[in-house]
Design a protein around this nucleic acid. Sequence first.
DNA 1: ATAATTTAATTAAACGTTTGTTTAATATCA
DNA 2: TGATATTAAACAAACGTTTAATTAAATTAT
Lengths: 220, 220
Amino acid sequence: MLLFKKMDKREIILSTAMKLFGQKGFEGTSVREIASGAGVNPAMISYYFGSKEKLFEKLVEHKAAYLKGVFEELVNNTSVTQIEKVFIVIDRYIERMFHSPQFHHLLHRELSLERRPQMKNAISEILLRNFVSVRKIIQDGIDSGEFRVVDTELTIASILGTINHLLSSEIMCRKILQKSKDFNPYQSKKLKDRISDHLKQLMRAHLLENSLHKKNKQAF
Amino acid sequence: MLLFKKMDKREIILSTAMKLFGQKGFEGTSVREIASGAGVNPAMISYYFGSKEKLFEKLVEHKAAYLKGVFEELVNNTSVTQIEKVFIVIDRYIERMFHSPQFHHLLHRELSLERRPQMKNAISEILLRNFVSVRKIIQDGIDSGEFRVVDTELTIASILGTINHLLSSEIMCRKILQKSKDFNPYQSKKLKDRISDHLKQLMRAHLLENSLHKKNKQAF
DNA sequence: ATAATTTAATTAAACGTTTGTTTAATATCA
DNA sequence: TGATATTAAACAAACGTTTAATTAAATTAT
């Protein structure tokens, strides 16, 4: 019972910190701001987490659970073609980005900063785990002749980079797509589908077309 | 003579602030740090620029000059094909990113933060100017039949996103490319060429192949 | 079950630093 | 001499964190 209520407040603090760190960055968010947002005394943050920095670490660790090894089963799934696997990867990445954009902003922002190297290391290891799975999928496609010979690593960078680039800033997204001020990228099903369609078309052209082995069965 | 020396110190402060803001972010960098790095009294920053925030604005304004309208002449250049124009755009973006990665980190980080909206607006306007030129190039290619019908805006996002994604973090870049600790992405000519080759191959497949109108003359 | 006791949660206040900025005095140059 | 540049010192405000006192909850004893 005690442990239950304790966890409750901890998670209110965690989710409030997640939101604020995502919006304003780590240095740009004060402990008092987090406490105020969570409806909690500022001292509670040190009490529960030890320090602001440890709260940050706990936060990433906590949230990163959702990112762990979701592609590992897909790699060895023999009931779908390689290009279909790539399409699934695309849709899962998009889904993930739309589901918690602030968290991804936070991760990439932290990676681009030259601070807290151990944190950068932890984040890159988290992101790399999925990377390895996706690389295997593309490499298998090349080895089997289903895909053309491409730069595997940079191909993945193109998939992730497209999504990140478009969604890293609401204002930029609106201007690029020529949308009005009330357009909310993260809640637009149409945008989601548009990115998905573009990336699948891009990857189909990049990986399949003009290939000698036309195993592609117009998936999706 | 007086004005000369004045400008000199101003620019030392500007370049020091550029480096530090790029490395540690705006709120992660103190005025005293900048002053110390520039070999200058902290009071000089208020004296020359008024405030830390105005220094930041002056900095972006100052640096952004290099980004202004470099593609505008290219759009109406009739001596190169549309795909060649796309290749030129790719190489210029890469060149730019390798030349001043810290500045681009700063720009994209600032865009991803929900702070200083007027600054975000200024940055997005700067980036958009080039965007419009590139869009025209791709749209012209589609209209003339040289290119397939593609999602113009997202195609540009794929080009920029690939470059940004790969170069937004040294540690991540090393891990993705499986390089050792002494590998410096920003000084690697090989990496530069590799990104260029990948993006050209990607865009060739995306924009040209299986096209009814085979005007493409295997450029580059 | 109730009271006593121990443990945990919460608070307001203060801690010592660091923050960006200003001031007032001094140095440098035209 | 007069304007500009530069400095050390001080400013108030905000920072993350700690403390000590209090309230709430859980445990134990009666």
